[in-house]
Amino acid sequence: MNVRVFQTLLKRELGFYLTTLTGYVILSMVMFLIGLSLLTVILAYNGRAMDAPLTEAFYATPFFWFIVLLACPAITMRSFAHEKSTGTYEALMTTPVSNLQIVFSKFLASWIFYGLMWLPLWGFMVWLGQFFNDPEYLDAGIVGGTALGVMLLGGLFLAIGCLASVATKSQLIAAMLALTLEMVLFMLSFVIELLPDQSGWQATLFGHICLFDHMGDFVRGIINGSHLIFYFTGTGLFLFLTWRWVESRK
């Protein structure tokens, strides 16, 4: 892989997020929702003792899934669809750059932007940390675990978004498609609760793909190997499918 070419691509992709209005609209919306969720947490625990880590309290607000489910399609919708609709895709695809580099640079840029988008949360955590005496409720491990979970979940959703974006010329359709696929995954996370038999293979399967279980562990600072495998393989699978889609141009 040619590093300089990859840097050029990555810089361009990130540049687009950071120099156009789209990027800032997403950033401000997410910042607003993060603020709202922390306000909810502060009001809920006002005058009461904490009974769970701060990150878990934040995760328990309805805003967490709202942010992830909505921001990811908004970030990735343009990555391929925009280039296809304006025709710059053809100009890109006829330069001596491999398809793998193109897919990976678009994914990585969206992931970095996604990471930036969450920065206010960590800022709030640090600020609130000053008021905590008990490390059980907020320490580096808990925040680190949460950050890892947020990034892994985002990686998976962004990979889904890349696939949705490569499949169409319309950014709107790409966003809707990504949201639908993410919602399917989100809904499948509820299945485990509905199963009458909690010991069968179905329970094991749905337990593995239950996003709530994963995040529930991450926000408590628990990093489980099987969760990591789930996110790595899932993200890899969707990126592979995206790459195959790019390759199959006829």
Partner: peptide, 8 residues
């Protein structure tokens, strides 16, 4: 400059 980067 961007295009030159892609074209090596």
């Amino acid at each position: 400059r961007f295009r030159a980067g892609l074209k090596g």
